[in-house]
Amino acid sequence: MKIAIPVDEKSLESNVCISFGRAPYFLIYNTNTRESTFLDNSAAESTGGAGIKAAQILVDNKVSILLTPRCGENAANVLKTADVEIYKTQGDSIKKNIHDFISGKLPLLDEIHPGFHGHGRN
């Protein structure tokens, strides 16, 4: 099973990124092999729809769990359609959140905020 977390830097010691779609990297943790890899989030550069694209990237990488502080409704739709479960991170620590998730201590993310609709228009 692959877990994804939006992170600020390519390091396990760095912090959970407060934004999902515009996070610079995703940490992908494989619970079977206990391996961590980092994925560049090319969606971060998008002027709009970053959450959708970021969600697509995770789905294409066969992620089945996302741990994130927040998530927009469009991204949540993509993830739900792909049966990815979304859990809410607690605090900044990446390691602690992975640990807490595995021991069943993280809650499901229930607050889905409205997205950054539109952008370079109006």
């Binding site: 934004s19 002027t47 950054f116 952008h119």
Partner: peptide
Amino acid sequence: GSGTSGMLVT
């Protein structure tokens, strides 16, 4: 002439 931008605010 540039539209309002959430990304610039971010």
